[in-house]
């Protein structure tokens, strides 16, 4: 009896706290969304009010879709983010598997070396990166961005995935070896599915910074045809006049793809068929 009551109390407390946090976290997003549907005047007069019949306006969205090649920016961002994530996960997982599975000379030094990048921000090397890109003729290509983001994401990916791979049952891998699976098959068919939650975590961690990055697109790929969404939206922010309707509309639309990717990855976080493999 006592215990049940306490549980209910705990539950209410926990939910209240979580709800409060959710409101806090979603508030800026909410403000952006409601204001993107309002007239410029209403945005400044009542920034916290939802749009009503008077203040409702789609000018922002119209401007965004008309001016500039917004859909193209969108596509660029999407390509850069998805391809970078793919390479981060692929190379990160492969390096992690080698570090976790094989005993070779310098194994732990190699692990440390690969993880070092976590502590050193990649932007410090911007000048050299730009020089390399100029030398290789990769400036103003999406490839340049993909390479940089892959390099940026790998250290943390290797670090996290190594820890998870070490926990995959040795017996399972050995059973695969006895059944004649190659090391590649063991990696792709047995180990990767078991570390899927960790892969999803790494993906979510890396996705947002890549999607939102302004620095490298501005420096490495500012050309019209390689502009990313974040860079493309900057045209509405002027030194003297800012088209707030357009900025808010662009931001609102930019949320959709990341949300979609996030939902996709977080579903992977839920452990599915992995239970019951060993023990």
């Amino acid at each position: 009896m006592n215990r049940a009551r306490q549980n209910i109390f705990n539950m209410i407390a926990a939910h209240t706290l979580l709800l409060a946090y959710m409101v806090l976290a979603l508030f800026p997003v909410f403000i952006i969304l409601i204001n993107s549907f309002k007239t410029r005047r209403a945005i400044f007069r009542h920034p916290l009010m939802p749009p009503d019949t008077d203040s409702f306006s789609l000018t922002g969205y119209e401007t965004v879709l008309k001016q500039g090649d917004f859909l193209h920016y969108f596509q660029n961002s999407m390509i850069v983010t998805v391809v970078s994530l793919f390479f981060i996960l692929l190379f990160g997982a492969m390096a992690a598997f080698a570090l976790a599975e094989y005993r070779f000379k310098g194994n732990s030094w190699m692990g440390l070396y690969l993880a070092l990048g976590i502590m050193i921000p990649i932007r410090i090397g911007t000048v050299s990166i730009l020089q390399i890109m100029v030398a290789t003729g990769l400036v103003n290509t999406l490839t340049a961005l993909i390479l940089v983001y892959t390099a940026q994401g790998l250290p943390l990916a290797v670090f996290i995935l190594t820890e998870f791979m070490k926990q995959v049952s040795n017996d399972l891998k050995n059973a695969g070896r006895i059944d004649g699976l190659s090391e590649y098959a063991i990696f792709f068919k047995l180990v990767l599915p078991l570390v899927r939650p960790a892969m999803a975590t790494v993906a979510v961690f890396n996705m947002i910074p890549i999607w939102n990055d302004l620095w490298f697109p501005l420096i490495l790929a500012p050309a019209e045809e390689t502009k990313t969404l974040t860079l493309g939206s900057q045209v509405f922010i002027g030194q003297f006049v800012t088209n707030w309707n357009a900025v808010l509309a662009a931001l609102s639309m930019a949320i959709i793809p990341v949300m979609t990717l996030y939902v996709f990855f977080s579903r992977q976080l839920i452990r599915g068929i992995t239970a019951g493999a060993v023990k």
């Binding site: 049952s169 017996d171 050995n174 059973a175 047995l190 068929i273 239970a275 019951g276 493999a277 060993v278």
Partner: peptide, 14 residues
Amino acid sequence: GIAMVFQTYALYPH
């Protein structure tokens, strides 16, 4: 030409 049975069963989960 061997087969092995493990303490933790080690069945393929998928």
